[in-house]
Amino acid sequence: MVDEAGDRDDSANVAIIREVYDSENAHETFECELERALEAECSLIVIEPSKLGDETSRWIAVGNCLHKTAALSGFASVVTGLIWGDRPYICGALGFTSVITCGLYTVSWQFDPCCQYQVETDTSKLPHVELLAVLGPSSPTFLVRKDDRRRKILHTTITLMALGISTWRLYQAFK
């Protein structure tokens, strides 16, 4: 069941997905509750069912990995393209990696409401620490909503720069 606590403004709402197995389709019910909480843009989502929490954590980790790969390989492509103008294959390979991972992120994760959340493992950083007393002995997964616009702009800009420099270096090499 999704419980919304806190103030009624959008910055303070919390969703708790309780681990209550009241039917044979409980896992599907948990997934529906998570979808509703993501669409409601809750600032904190507490997921008590461990299976759903693990699946969601892995999904977020894959998106984070794609973002970091796009940004780091793009940055490395730009640096190697500027430093080693005579080695376009290094710059080109890194630029290609950045373009592919940025494209995968854009197609698969950008429009997913889950990409705006990060898993928080340090409970002292949670916005609603008083909720921990209500949760009980389980070890839930905590999702905290983060603004990811700057992150998307960063990796897209770096990828476009890497694509430009890689293309230029490859053009110079084959000219």
Rank of each mutant, 00 (worst) to 15 (best):
T97V: 15
P49I: 00
H155P: 09
R87Y: 11
G81I: 04
W109N: 13
Q172E: 15
A5G: 02
F30P: 05
V78H: 11
V99F: 14
E41H: 10
Y117M: 12
I100H: 04
F174W: 13
Y89A: 11
D122G: 13
E28L: 12
T141F: 11
I17P: 03
V144D: 07
H27T: 05
V129T: 15
A133P: 02
E130S: 09
Q116D: 14
T69H: 02
K68R: 10
V62A: 06
W84I: 08
I17R: 00
N25M: 10
E41S: 09
E120G: 01
Q116G: 13
E35Q: 11
G6L: 02
L135K: 06
M1L: 08
D54G: 07
S50A: 14
F96R: 09
C102D: 01
A5E: 04
N13Y: 02
C91R: 02
L163M: 14
V129K: 12
V134C: 06
T97M: 08
Y171E: 15
L82C: 07
S43I: 02
G81T: 00
E48R: 03
V119K: 15
D122K: 08
E130N: 11
R149A: 12
L163G: 09
D3I: 12
A40G: 05
P113S: 07
G81S: 05
S139Q: 13
C115I: 14
V107M: 13
K51L: 10
T97E: 00
G53N: 06
D112V: 00
D122N: 15
I90N: 00
G95E: 08
L143I: 00
F96H: 06
E55W: 05
A162G: 03
V107N: 01
L82V: 14
A71S: 15
M161V: 02
I45R: 10
A12H: 12
L160P: 01
